[in-house]
Design a binder for these strands. Sequence first.
DNA 1: CTGAAAGCGCTTACAG
DNA 2: CTGAAAGCGCTTACAG
Lengths: 334, 334
Amino acid sequence: MRDVAKAANVSQSTVSRILSPLSSKSKVPISEETKGKVLAVVKELGYQPNQYARSLRGQKNHVIGMLIADISNPFYHPMVRAVQDVASQYHYGVMIANSDHLYEKEMLFCESLLRRPVDGAIMIPYHLTDDDLQDLKARTGMAISAVGNHVQHPEVDVIYADDTKASYEAVQWLIEKRGHERIAMICASHKFPVITRRYGAFQLAMQDAGLSVPPEYVVEGDWSVESGRRAIASLLALPKPPTAVFAASDTIAIGALAAAEEMNYRVPEDIAIIGFDDIPAASWVRPQLTTIAQYPGEMGTLLATALFERIRGEYNGPSRRFEVPCRFFERGSA
Amino acid sequence: MRDVAKAANVSQSTVSRILSPLSSKSKVPISEETKGKVLAVVKELGYQPNQYARSLRGQKNHVIGMLIADISNPFYHPMVRAVQDVASQYHYGVMIANSDHLYEKEMLFCESLLRRPVDGAIMIPYHLTDDDLQDLKARTGMAISAVGNHVQHPEVDVIYADDTKASYEAVQWLIEKRGHERIAMICASHKFPVITRRYGAFQLAMQDAGLSVPPEYVVEGDWSVESGRRAIASLLALPKPPTAVFAASDTIAIGALAAAEEMNYRVPEDIAIIGFDDIPAASWVRPQLTTIAQYPGEMGTLLATALFERIRGEYNGPSRRFEVPCRFFERGSA
DNA sequence: CTGAAAGCGCTTACAG
DNA sequence: CTGAAAGCGCTTACAG
């Protein structure tokens, strides 16, 4: 910048004002002549301002952080893409971290934000509490948007899918429209709020229909395809196996589907399978997966839009909550 | 840091030396007593050094950049994960950008590295030339690892799959083991070096077998599932349709498979399909995809390892080239 | 073994 | 409309 100033015969202050016209709220006017001269020199030298110096001195970092569970899970892609797309509109970078569903890694992410401040963070917390978020906000002042109805912080914007209702209705559909009575559920850890919701809805639907769920019908794994394979194998090995399975995610359901087929069970005749998410592969497998669609792309856009409204000072009131409805897709697997 | 220094009754210099013992190559010794005192204060105050200030003053930024084509393509996930995992071992952050296979966005990524310097970059360039990389290196001095045999810069480490050979052999297999004579190829843009290689190998294998490829047997789309659907439809509508198709990626092949089935063609009896990549979904679809596996996880590890060797000064010689062999998987679709 | 001081590259009151 | 100067939070010669 000094070189630019020298070459253009103006002060650094002037160069700075021309290059960051938005940040100076006091809106200092600059003559068109000086402006043209400086811009020409900038172009000629190919000068790019150092963003770290700006971060250090100014109030904006021009980066946001994003915490997801696992970049390999297709469910997150549209969300990540949507966030990246909104961010790049504002010329913001996005730092992405995976938590692998581990509290420890979620905390590491928060710590990294202390060392490398960002203007805002988008989180999909599986363990982080409202207190943890409060701590982060108190120490950094950053804007936060999060996914999940369990997040209740008064200043964190929340986007959530109504998965409780969707799960209830799917199980109800299995019972009423398909006549199933022996229904199992393949979950991930019950420590996750999302599992609490979906599993709770499953139990409630069964209970409301007067159906009982033997404990061995509830299998706890992780979110992987492999976990789905293992779970269905144990379920089908039961003396009285279920006739239908509600899986907490499509990845789990796809594993279950593949393993059931390999064990020579017909889907949905011998065992019906319902997934959750409607990832692209849900329509690639055969039979196609009956599943509950979430709209991660839309969620990502809402998340990023809300975040940037706060970052840009266009909104700074209390927490806003957006519900993104789920949608049931009846396909071939149930 | 000033607060820490004050509270511990030492100078800022001392605090800095204790917190960044590696960076001071002159290896100034510190008394254990002072060290303990300072560390205690750091812990008590929950102090975290500001990484931007470090970047500005020191020589390390503790971030790397990663340019991929599209985070939605499963092929990149193991690569991204591997890179993230190696990076976090060294306490490095990773900034990820999507190029969407656009030169313009690849250049934008390079520009962003000028504004927000990183210690190294991992790239999967579809358009960027060696000159572009040279430009970036000259202006920033950063270390670079890249994917693709077409990258020939003398100081950029390159990881590449031998997709030319693998493609040739797959087409040869289609001809010799399966007796196909009318074979089509679904490509992405021929501007991509990767397509040049795979398409060139396809043509060569056909030629070596004395088989001709009518121009309408070469369909150019993009990398999407949708593109595979469109391509197979146009191919099957031909007066003399092909009996086998070599797709440039699994995403394309999966689209082709689904569309062919919907049009009531049997795979592989009516139309055989071979993909490329062996993404997880290749084993989820029915019939399972016959495909050429690449090992993106391994590639990611090599990429990141080579990069960090340069970043950490453990290596600074000329370009190293690692070939990661492909592997053919005969499954159900061909 | 420790400290005082300069400076990384910017932005922003303050002064004119 | 423009400039001189201070300072963001660190690291690193330099001096002791």
